[in-house]
Structure formats: structure tokens, C-alpha cells
């Protein structure tokens, strides 16, 4: 079952193309990583999927229906935004009560234990909360809503490493008990790379990668060693990156590594974060290259 399906979706803000022919699926009851640089289009995708914006063209389905102004769908969706705003005069308690009325799967006991876990003062007004406490409130609402489709868009602003780790642990434990579709959008790829089952990488409004995390893990290797040996090894593989220091060469290659590598070469796996960085850089380079030829064309 797919929770989310986008087919050939375009989104324009005036002349700006935010999404360019995006097609993706989020399978049900998995943790998805929605990755990409700032301005890549991640938030636009999440806004469209949660009915806070609409596509310029293409088809969008959430649980089989178009989400825009569709209460059936939206009551099953929770969207925790980056720098989420709650009414300033609300207390933490008010915000949690409002959320409990909104989400049919809301678990009040779980919410209480999360408030304790993140040491959030229930009676304090929203406007008096620190940045980290505001983020904690968003995280609590996202988790306790138990919505069948939950988006966390960079929910960490102001959360320290300890609180983030707590969030990951709580998310994993609760997801194991109550499987649901979770979409994590984040720049902290190293922190979530073992949590997510599926990766969608967006760049410049397009989908660059849409694959299982496990298959991406063995996707690329970094080979370091004497330049000639590395060149020999690299022949026939597609190259993502290259650095040279004197006679020493380091290349990042995509495609599975041969089982037996020569002794004088150092072959290392590439982390998901490195793979995302390299893939995005490569796409940017290709864009500049094709952009340059296009300009030549128009000048004639």
C-alpha cells in the first residue's frame, strides 16, 4: 500500500519553478527520509501533501484521495513544521488540548509522558517558551498525534544533541509499537541514516534519488591509494568525486565495489550523508554545464 503518491507534479510560484515533474511514492507504515538542500522543494512537497498548498499540475494522492481541502484525508495527517507557530497566548497545556481535539488517534497518556520526558512547563505561555522548548512541543504533538501520516520538517531548531537523541529513541520505540507512515525531512543525515528505511532526495525541484536506504548503503565507495592503481580500479565505474594530492588519489565511485580489491588500495564505504552530498553536487555540476550550452544557443 502507498500512503502518498505524486505523479508528474509541477509547482510554480510566479516565474519560480519550485517542483519540476516530481513523481514519488511513500509506502505505508515506513519511516521515509525526505532529503535535500535548502530551497530544493522539500517543504513545498509537504505543503502540497498536507493541503496547505496545491500543485500547478500533476496528480497528488494521500491515502488514495486528493488532500487539498479534504477533511477525510487531513484528519489523518500531522505536519510538524520547521519553526512551528502556535497561538502566542496559549499555554503549553492549551496547545496540547487543541491537538488532542484535532487528531483522532491522540494518546493523552503518551503526551503526558513526553511532556515529562522533554521537561516542558505545562502552564507556561507559548510566547515565553525558548526555541528548544517550542521545538519540543512540536515533536510531542507530532508523536502523540499517532497520525497515520506524520511529517517532521526539520523539527529540531534549538534542540540540543541530547534532546534530538531522545526524539529519535522515542520515535523508534513508538513506531515499533504503533507502525505508521513517517516522513522525516532533515539536514542531519548522519543522525537519521539508520532510522530511515527509504530515501527520497530532492534537488532543484526534481527527484534525484528514490530508493531503499539499505541499497543506497552499498551504492558507493571511496577508493584511496597510488594514483595509477586507483585509476585502474576506477575504470568502468561512474565517478562522483575526485581529489588528488601528489601521487595519491581519492575517488568516490558509484556501483558496487568488487569483492577483492588490490592490497595497496584503501576502499571505504560511503555514508548516506556523503552519498547525498556527492549526488547533489554532481547534479549541480551537470546543470551548470547544460545551462552554459543553452546560453550559447540563445546568443545565436
Amino acid at each position: 500500500m502507498t500512503a502518498v503518491s505524486m505523479r508528474g507534479v509541477n509547482k510554480k510560484y510566479g516565474n519560480v519553478v519550485a517542483l519540476d515533474d516530481v513523481s514519488l511514492n511513500f509506502a505505508e507504515n515506513r519511516i521515509h527520509g525526505l532529503l535535500g538542500r535548502n530551497g530544493a522543494g522539500k517543504t513545498t512537497i509537504m505543503r502540497i501533501l498536507t493541503g496547505q498548498g496545491f500543485e500547478s499540475s500533476g496528480s497528488v494522492e494521500v491515502f488514495g484521495q486528493r488532500p487539498y481541502e479534504n477533511a477525510d484525508v487531513l484528519s489523518h495527517v500531522c505536519f510538524v513544521k520547521e519553526s512551528q507557530k502556535y497561538p502566542e497566548m496559549f499555554s503549553v497545556h492549551h496547545a496540547l488540548t487543541a491537538a488532542s481535539l484535532l487528531y483522532e488517534n491522540w494518546d493523552p497518556d503518551f503526551a503526558d509522558s513526553l511532556v515529562e520526558e522533554f521537561e516542558l512547563p505545562l502552564k507556561r505561555r507559548i510566547k515565553k517558551l525558548s526555541r528548544g522548548q517550542l521545538s519540543a512541543l512540536g515533536v510531542i504533538i507530532g508523536l502523540a498525534s499517532r497520525a497515520p501520516l506524520t511529517f517532521f520538517d526539520e523539527p529540531y531548531l534549538g534542540l540540543d544533541a541530547v534532546a534530538r537523541q531522545r526524539f529519535y529513541d522515542l520515535l523508534l520505540a513508538d513506531y515499533a509499537e504503533n507502525p505508521r507512515t513517517i516522513v522525516l525531512s532533515t539536514h542531519l543525515i548522519d543522525e537519521v541514516s539508520d532510522l530511515i528505511e527509504h530515501v527520497t532526495l530532492i534537488d532543484a525541484g526534481q527527484v534525484l534519488l528514490d530508493e531503499d536506504a539499505e541499497s543506497l548503503r552499498s551504492r558507493a565507495v571511496t577508493v584511496t591509494g597510488p594514483a595509477r592503481a586507483v585509476e585502474e580500479f576506477a575504470a568502468g565505474h561512474s565517478e562522483l568525486h575526485r581529489e588528488q594530492l601528489g601521487g595519491f588519489l581519492r575517488v568516490t565511485l558509484s556501483g558496487a565495489a568488487p569483492e577483492h580489491s588490490p592490497d595497496d588500495l584503501h576502499v571505504e564505504p560511503v555514508s548516506l550523508q556523503q552519498l547525498v552530498v556527492r549526488t547533489t553536487q554532481q547534479a549541480a555540476d551537470e546543470r551548470t554545464a547544460s545551462g552554459a550550452t543553452n546560453n550559447k544557443g540563445t546568443r545565436r
Binding site: 529519535y168 520505540a173 539508520d194
Partner: peptide, 18 residues
């Protein structure tokens, strides 16, 4: 169990199940 392994190693439960 799958969930114990997932929580301990901080990995996705589906991976632990595999």
C-alpha cells in the same frame, strides 16, 4: 526481539527484522 534490537542499535525495526 526485533523491537529490542531496533531500540538498542537505534535502527529501523524493518532492518532488525531482516
Amino acid at each position: 526481539s526485533t523491537n529490542e534490537l531496533a531500540a538498542f542499535h537505534r535502527i529501523n525495526p524493518a532492518t532488525a527484522a531482516n
